[in-house]
Amino acid sequence: MTVLLALVTALLFACGSWLLMQRRLTRIIIGIGLLGHGANLLLVTSGGAGGRPPIVATDGSTDLATLADPLPQALALTAIVITFGVTALLLALGYRSWQITGDDMVEDDVEDRFLERRRTIDGPEAEIDDGDPITSELEVGDGA
């Protein structure tokens, strides 16, 4: 059971990280959501093996050794609430960004482009941005 949960956590982390690397805001937000779920699941799993009764067992026993550890569950609840609130804020920010730019791509940094421009005017290093995968991807974002 714990191994299964660990695998699910790993899967959530992997998908979340991949989505986080994308240039579309909606994907980034979903990625953050998946990462949050993964972390919360890990928190629950840290309480030990599943299947134990909470507070009182069906046969009435209150032996602490056989009961589920309530603390990680309480911590996970707190973390879920925080993740929920922040995801809502992220969605609002994403919507605002879409309102302003009409697109949900992440824009390039204005200051970086300014420095880049200054460098092209100033000196011979101008040819740096030829064929460089990073800068050519930046240019795609320029059109937005």
Partner: peptide
Amino acid sequence: IRSGMSYVVISLVASTLFISALAL
């Protein structure tokens, strides 16, 4: 919005790592 977004996302990644560290 542009720079705020990257601030929020990077902080959230840090928070997620923090929860994972806490769990471990």
